[in-house]
Amino acid sequence: MKSFIKALKSFAAAKDGATAIEYALLAGLISVVIVTAVTGVGTGIDAVFDGVVAAL
């Protein structure tokens, strides 16, 4: 049990885990922005193609 507590304290004191979490959050935020942008562009392109089909 003492080794588990020692390992837990070591993990809490390590800075590498915090950096990895920060990078993961940043990557998640960037992916949300990309999905939102692609969805918006896709909607705009859909409207353009609907206009072309209507013109034909």
Score class of each variant (00 low, 15 high):
A7R: 14
L8Q: 07
I21V: 12
I45Y: 13
G51D: 11
L26N: 07
I21R: 14
K2M: 12
V33E: 03
A37W: 04
V48G: 00
G51N: 13
S10W: 07
G28S: 02
A54L: 10
F4S: 05
V52R: 02
A55W: 07
S31F: 05
V53M: 06
T36F: 14
V35R: 06
T43N: 08
I30N: 07
V38G: 03
L25H: 04
T39V: 13
S3N: 11
V41C: 00
K15W: 00
I30D: 04
F4L: 13
M1H: 15
L25S: 02
A24H: 03
F11P: 01
A7M: 14
L25N: 06
D50I: 01
G40H: 02
S10R: 14
S3W: 11
I30M: 11
A37S: 08
T43R: 03
F49L: 15
T19V: 11
L25F: 08
I5E: 14
D46I: 01
A14S: 15
A20P: 00
T36H: 03
V41Q: 01
F11H: 09
L56C: 05
G42S: 08
S3R: 05
G17A: 12
V35T: 04
A20L: 15
F49T: 13
L56N: 12
I5N: 12
A7W: 10
I34T: 03
F4M: 10
S31N: 09
T39C: 12
T19F: 07
A24C: 03
A24K: 06
K15L: 02
G17L: 13
A27V: 04
V48P: 01
A18I: 02
I21Q: 07
G17T: 12
A14P: 01
A37R: 06
A14T: 07
G28D: 08
A47G: 07
T36D: 10
V53D: 08
L8E: 08
T36A: 15
D50Y: 03
K15D: 13
I5D: 14
I5R: 09
E22D: 13
L56V: 10
I30Y: 07
L29K: 11
A27R: 05
A55Y: 04
A54I: 01
G40D: 08
Y23A: 14
I30L: 12
K15I: 03
V38S: 11
A55I: 02
S10H: 08
G51E: 07
Y23G: 02
Y23T: 07
L26H: 06
A13S: 09
A14V: 01
V35P: 00
V32K: 04
K2T: 13
S10F: 04
I34G: 01
T36N: 04
F49E: 15
V52F: 06
A14G: 09
S31A: 09
Y23P: 00
K9P: 00
F11L: 14
